[in-house]
């Protein structure tokens, strides 16, 4: 047992070394890609052909199968970024800031898709693309936070230094997200006592729940796949940068 506990960090830090990560993650891409494609195929089949129409919204209800997974990912990705920020600050992991940088644009895209599909859904349901509804508003604020973090990544010349600073911002954002959520809800009820949109979560029939869960799995796998690919790209990009520096050092005749 004692041998195991000593081995554990070694094993983990070895896998998390950028070079090692490049080596073993290569074998992850194809299985992940196939699993993603399969679950999308199943999920989309259920969503289009094997789930009921809504008695009010008709076929529009099927937007939900894209909307809900994206909304879920918009939060999950931020969670991943917050964990990687901890990794950067506490454990000083060489991979952690790569993970943060790779995840930020993905999170932004998923959040934007959640808002977009929400707007598509809102048009026939509310009669307008946008409503300052509590959930949509806090999702919009989340998107702005993502975009701010991306802008910060782009603004830094030195990406290693950027990692630690952005990790702090990410964590402050993570701590602040519940506050934002609470304040937006408070603001929202202040102005609109009767909510337009009530959640229909738990009392969902199984015929809707099944495709929804499959689609959530599919989108989560898609995120995992894209995250791995982006992390590999970022590591390779940093290597290329190092090589450029070395080329500059050795070039003067």
């Amino acid at each position: 047992m004692s041998v195991d506990t000593v081995k554990q960090p070694n094993w983990f830090s070895r896998l998390a070394h950028p070079g090692q990560f490049l080596a073993w993650s290569r074998y992850l891409i194809w299985p992940l890609g196939i699993a993603t494609a399969l679950s999308f195929a199943i999920g989309l089949y259920f969503a289009f052909f094997n789930s009921p129409e809504d008695y009010q919204m008709g076929d529009m209800v099927r937007v939900m199968y894209v909307h809900v997974p994206n909304a879920w990912l918009s939060q999950l990705v931020y969670g991943v970024m917050a964990v990687s920020a901890l990794g950067t600050l506490v454990w000083r992991h060489p991979l952690a800031d790569v993970a943060n940088k790779a995840a930020a644009p993905l999170g932004a895209v998923f959040t934007a898709l959640a808002l977009y599909t929400g707007a598509l859904w809102g048009r026939p349901t509310w009669g307008t693309f946008w409503e300052w509804d509590g959930r949509m508003t806090s999702t919009l604020v989340l998107l702005l936070i993502y975009l701010g973090i991306i802008a910060l990544w782009r603004a830094f010349d030195d990406q290693l230094k950027a990692g630690r600073i952005i990790a702090i911002v990410t964590l402050v954002g993570a701590l602040n997200l519940p506050v934002i959520k609470f304040s937006v809800d408070w603001w929202n009820t202040l102005h609109q006592p009767a909510s337009v949109f009530t959640a229909s979560g738990p009392h969902m029939p199984i015929s809707i729940l099944t495709p929804l869960l499959v689609m959530m799995l599919a989108f989560t796998l898609l995120f995992a796949l894209l995250q791995v690919v982006r992390m590999r790209t970022e590591i390779l990009r940093r290597r290329a940068e190092t090589l450029s520096r070395q080329a500059a050092l050795g070039a003067t005749k």
């Binding site: 782009r154 603004a155 830094f156 010349d157």
Partner: peptide
């Protein structure tokens, strides 16, 4: 490092 996109934000 450019600031065009930040301004839009």
């Amino acid at each position: 490092g450019g600031e065009a996109l930040t301004l839009v934000l």
